[in-house]
Design a binder for these strands. Structure first.
Lengths: 215, 215
DNA sequence: TAATTGAATTGATTTAAATCAAGAAGGGAA
DNA sequence: TTCCCTTCTTGATTTAAATCAATTCAATTA
């Protein structure tokens, strides 16, 4: 929880990128910076007593819940620059989701109390955050449509294209294990494996382990 | 777009219910009130040039998208007191969703421009809205979990219990046609029909047309 | 009132994806 | 390096839900 004096991870976060410099500097003073989470470790979990939002300076993470039967549902895939848990800046309830590093991560975070203090005299900040919430809702809706109106092959291809677009690349490594990606797409690992094969066979992608290339 | 002088629909909306009275009064002055939408009509649709958020003073509505193949995905079920489209208070992009009255509706709405003016000097308002966004995200996640980790029967029962809880009742009329509810749950109408039968046969609910009673 | 139209239901059948099963590949730890 | 454990892949089989098909029902309107 070192407090840097210079503009760090926060200013790189998509969510705050349009804020004026003085405000960014203030945000940095109330943030923790570049906490290290090794692959597999939990950035957040239910009942950990932590509040506020987090964002990824580097690495990848997955957000998921467990239902009462222990079945996992992957809700979000976090890539470098993404943030999540904004809802914890306001509600006083405990968060219910697990956030687990799927690669070594550097994470910045902001506490509810500190954030709320700042919010009172920064309409810009509120607006920025409201915009970001809007984006997250739209993404959530997009994921719902993907699961609801596409078959297995279409879902896989749609995700890959979407991810490539987000990165601005046509080749990349998957940000999650395939079993987690399968879950995120509402599929089983077996089905994902077969669909990746099929997409490669039809010349639409190249797959080598975690590496994907779009054609 | 009549401008009432008294506190009307807006003050009843869940999203604003915790705001101080003077602020509510100001909100009323920038809202349209109780516009009537007959069953089947569109409250919003892509390219209608409308912006801002809406909320339901009475009636029911569904929010849905059409994919390029024309397949519908029902994203939200709106009941009395619910609001949607908050994301349109900020982004300048066009909204992509259809909002259609599934019963006769009275609708209030607020325009982006008017709202943003108010937001600048009302931190309370921003906070209220941010809270609401958080709720909507959590609901969206809950819907994802329902679709991802439950079979057809569980989804139906979970929805019915959820809806009953929301209303504080054990008997109610479904807020949508069954074909739309089926879509919202990621099912076909045939499957919904059969599952409602099965739930009735096992004594868990009573079904009479749109009327549902939970046991 | 009857006619029309879409919604809902019921039954028969198909099918996409899940499940089951077994081996191969990969990544740590000792 | 070997061992262990999890993930990934491939094949065979099952199954839950979709699809197809045909009535029935309900709402609207002429």
């Amino acid at each position: 929880m070192a407090h840097h004096s210079e503009i760090a991870c926060l200013s790189k976060a998509t969510i705050f990128k349009n804020l004026p410099l003085p405000l960014k500097k203030k945000l940095v003073t109330i943030s923790s910076h570049q906490d290290f989470f090794p692959k597999g470790s939990f950035i957040r979990q239910p009942l950990d007593g932590k509040d506020g939002m987090i964002f990824l300076d580097s690495g990848h993470a997955k957000v998921y819940t467990l239902n009462t039967a222990g079945k996992e549902t992957v809700l979000e895939v976090l890539n470098k620059g993404d943030s999540t848990g904004q809802e914890n800046l306001f509600s006083t309830g405990n968060h219910e989701n697990f956030i687990q590093a799927t690669e070594d991560c550097l994470v910045c975070s902001m506490k509810r109390h500190d954030f709320q203090m700042m919010l009172k005299d920064s309409p810009d900040l509120a607006l920025s955050l409201l915009n970001d919430f809007g984006e997250r809702l739209i993404t959530a809706e997009k994921n719902t449509v993907r699961r609801n109106s596409m078959n297995a092959k279409e879902r896989v291809l749609d995700y890959l294209k979407d991810h490539g677009k987000k990165l601005g690349k046509t080749s990349f490594n998957l940000p999650l294990q395939k079993k987690d990606l399968a879950n995120f797409l509402g599929l089983t690992p077996e089905t994902l494996s077969r669909q990746l094969n099929a997409l490669q066979a039809s010349g639409q992608i190249i797959v080598k382990g975690q590496f994907i290339s779009l054609n």
